[in-house]
Structures are given as C-alpha cells and as structure tokens.
Design a protein around this nucleic acid. Structure first.
Lengths: 121, 121
DNA sequence: CGAATTCTTCGACGTTCATCTAATTACAAG
DNA sequence: CTTGTAATTAGATGAACGTCGAAGAATTCG
C-alpha cells in the first residue's frame, strides 16, 4: 500500500522543515521535499515557469499561458494550481483575469536544499 | 494524447543540453530537466540517496538499502535503477553484491540549473 | 438584469508509477 | 555440478497523473 503524498498544506512551509541530525532522512522530510520536486518535475510546468520568468514582472494570466504550451485552458489551470499550492507561484485576481507570479526564493530554496545536501542530514 | 517522457539515453547528458536563447523553454530541454527532477521527486528515492550520502564512500548494496526504507528488495531495485539510469547513481558488481554510489556532481548540476534559472533561457 | 470574458471545477479516459509475489539470472563456495 | 545468496525481471494490481470537453463561478460592461 503506497504512502500517498500529502497536499502542501499538510507539510512544512517553503522547504523541508527542521531536518534532524540522524544519518537517514526522516520520512516526513523526504515527503516534504518530494512534493516540491514533483511540482517542478513536469515539462509543461517547467515551460510555464520559463515563460513566467522571462516576463517583465515574472507574471502572466492563464489565457496568455495556454497558447505558450499549446494545451487547453483547463489543463493549464490545473498545472498552475499545482505550482501555486506548492508555493512556487502566487495567484492574484485582477478584474476578469488571474495573474500568476513566480516566487524565485521558493525555487532557490529547493535548489539550495539539493545542492548542500541539507535534506540528507 | 500525452507526450511521454523518454529514457535518459534519448536525452542530453548530465544536464539540460545547450539551452537556446529563446524566451520560452524548448520542449526538449524541458523534458530533459523534468526527467532528472522526476528521478529525485520521490520520498523513497530521497531516503535512499540520504542514506548513501551518509555512508563513508557514499555507496551501499541493495540488500543493505532495502531495510533502510522498509520495502521489498525488488521495489528497492526498481528505485535504484531509476536513479542509476538518470545518472544520479553508479552501479558496480562486487562478487555477489552490487554497489550503488552517489554521483554528487549530478545532483549539483540539477540544483545549479534550478538556482540560476539557466533552464529558462 | 443580461451578455461576454476569464478562469476553475467536474467527470471521464488512458497512461504512468509504486508496490508486491513469484520466477529468473548471476555469482561464489562446497 | 549443486547448493545458497544477491539481485533483477516479469506480471499483476491499485493509485496518481495529465488531458480533454462540458458545465459552473466570477467579474466587467452595456
């Protein structure tokens, strides 16, 4: 019976919690990091992030993003939601449209965790 | 019709290829990075890596790793294979047992790609 | 209010994935 | 060559994922 990944709300903020000093990674910390990596580990989501990062304010709305990845709006909405609930994007309504914006620190935090091997201590 | 992820052999080495200068991430580069992130985006594999990183030579054999994550040996073998074919681990036979070892540069390369936003340019 | 636009939710479908047990291969030592 | 140990492969099963079209909010404007 596979242990299912929790929603981000059930997990520590931004990245990877306190991280004990045991030789092996605690299962909960592993899950917390895996949830964030999983949010990034999709070609469509990476392309969406790439497009957003290339924008002046690193933001755009759904209707602009759908053509970029050549997928239906519901599908793009689904991906954006995943990125948002993983803490990688923010979501803001402006009139009729919704603006998603990159949180660079979130990506940096994940990168740093990997790079320093902090998740393994 | 979902575009399926290719095996690592079909994709650029270590990380993310030439990366053009377009504003949007090319689909192939996105896939290449996604394949590697996906290999990391699993709690069990993160735990396995954590254990390996904590070992003197950052290596261990399958039979030692199975108890660490409390899963069957075939399952662990499956995860190790995924990490190996993604270029994150090396595999070496020594008599009856097989030693897996971490390639730290592989992890660093992924982290750096994320951190610098290089995959988005 | 009613119509138009943007976005999300819902329900369905096929694919991918993690896991197990059982069978198979690879190697070492009697 | 046979036995024993380590590791993988094969096949099956259930969960999670990506995708779509259709239907349902939310907001603006006439």
């Amino acid at each position: 019976m596979p242990k299912t990944l929790p929603l981000l709300d059930d997990v520590s903020p931004i990245c990877c919690g306190p991280l004990g000093n045991s030789a092996t990674l605690e299962i909960d910390d592993a899950i917390a990091l895996a949830v964030r990596l999983k949010a990034l580990a999709d070609p469509v989501r990476l392309q969406l992030l790439a497009y957003l990062l290339a924008q002046p304010n690193q933001e755009a709305c759904t209707c602009d993003l759908a053509p970029v990845v050549k997928l239906s709006e519901p599908t793009v909405s689904h991906h954006l939601k995943k990125l948002q609930t993983s803490g990688i994007l923010t979501k803001e309504r402006h009139g009729m449209s919704v603006h998603y914006r990159v949180i660079p620190e979130a990506i940096h935090a994940i990168a740093r965790t990997l790079d320093t091997g902090a998740w393994a201590r």
